[in-house]
Design a protein around this nucleic acid. Structure first.
Lengths: 237, 237
DNA sequence: GTCTATAATCGGATAGAC
DNA sequence: GTCTATCCGATTATAGAC
């Protein structure tokens, strides 16, 4: 096999070992954080629970927060790939909505559940929330660049790619937080909450305050409803 | 004098001393961060530069980040007070825009300049950016609660207050970041950048991508232009 | 205010596994 | 020989005792 084939998910016994250690650390962290809270769990405990030294832990992850937040970057990268699949002629807002739908169905429920657990932790630990938001900011920049590139927009004098990315990200974030705070919800509730927030975003900004409640019927130019998938007819959320 | 009179800005020699120490710490931190960067500056250095012990520093500020980010909270509280001054019948988006304008003119330019310096630091220090974003999240929650209260909205089943607050905050943040990254600008450039982003937000979400450039002329239901002050004659939305 | 303790994070020297 | 992990020790943020 070539050097290239053993890069990422592929074989290579050394890489396999690495991936296992990494996963063990993530699992241990997630479990310990849930049991004791984020702040009350030390990196030493996590390392011990994963049967590695503390130093080893820090070679895999630069900070304690990163142990569980890497899954966020992976999800957002998946999202960017889905976005790149959309036709460039499509309005960026529609592309974002379609890409999100595609991302939901691509992710394994295990991952989504991890997100949910992480967000609940972040809602109680300012440090963790801060780290999460900082990563979101980085990913938002990547997203804005991608939108600018797809639309041929010069970001130097046109803030729209950043604005669209930021507003979209905000709405998604609000949806996630609301789901977490409502307590019980599982993955389905999460998706429903986020979709609801995305649908309400533009009406909230553009329509008189009292009449929007019916949720579906809205007279704004682009209703922000679920967009059709790139390839075929899909189940609208 | 009563206990109450010596509370905040009022006299009381003890409080005066406290305020001076506090200011000395903020000034020292801002200067040292600018000289050496946020991460390269230790809390010991800051304390020494302000002629206090490290322990004293931590009595004033719980974390290193808080030394310079307190000004953010003060500004956002001013903003909330300005928002509370608006008529509740006004659409929240208009109230937010008007409150922002009022906040700009209330703040002394010294404060605004501090914000600019802080944001430039945050753009280079992930830790500081994270702390800033976390505070923004807290303030956004306060803002959303205020909007919900003013509009009589039940946040349990209606996400619009959070969505409006988040979208508005995002646009402001994008405006600030863009100003910081464009390098040269002073306070005037900051305000112009933020205003431009606020004007472009709704068109970016609702209008076809290519035709928005003229910046002022836009056909969306609520153009998001600068809103009239609370007392004078205003153009109804 | 000083002194001390805990914990995150980094760097170096070293040794085992492929 | 390269990669990986471990032990040891340094630095710094932050909390507490006095």
């Amino acid at each position: 096999m070539s050097v290239i084939t053993m890069e990422a998910t592929d074989g290579g016994l050394r890489e396999l070992k690495k991936a296992r250690t990494r996963e063990a650390l993530v699992d241990a962290a997630l479990r310990l954080f849930a049991e004791q809270g984020f702040g009350a769990t030390t990196t030493e405990e996590i390392a011990a629970a994963a049967d590695v030294s503390q130093r080893t832990l820090f070679r895999y992850f630069p900070t304690k927060e990163d142990i569980i937040l890497d899954v966020q970057d992976e999800t957002e990268e998946t999202f960017r790939l889905k976005l790149a699949d959309r036709p460039t002629a499509e309005h960026p807002v529609d592309s974002l909505l379609a890409a999100l739908t595609a991302t939901w169905s691509e992710l394994d429920p295990q991952s989504l559940n991890a997100h949910l657990r992480i967000m609940r932790l972040a809602d109680e630990s300012p440090k963790l929330l801060a780290a999460h938001l900082q990563r979101s900011a980085v990913n938002l920049n990547l997203l804005a660049s991608l939108i600018a590139h797809r639309t041929g927009t010069d970001t130097a004098d046109d803030p729209r790619p950043e604005l669209v990315a930021a507003a979209f990200g905000s709405a998604v974030h609000v949806g996630i937080i609301r789901c977490c705070r409502s307590g019980d919800g599982g993955v389905d509730a999460l998706i429903a909450s986020v979709n609801h927030c995305l649908v309400q975003l533009i009406p909230a900004l553009t329509e008189p305050w009292d009449t929007v409640r019916p949720a579906e019927a809205c007279a704004s130019p682009r209703p922000l409803g679920p967009a059709p998938p790139a390839d075929g007819p899909g189940t609208p959320a």
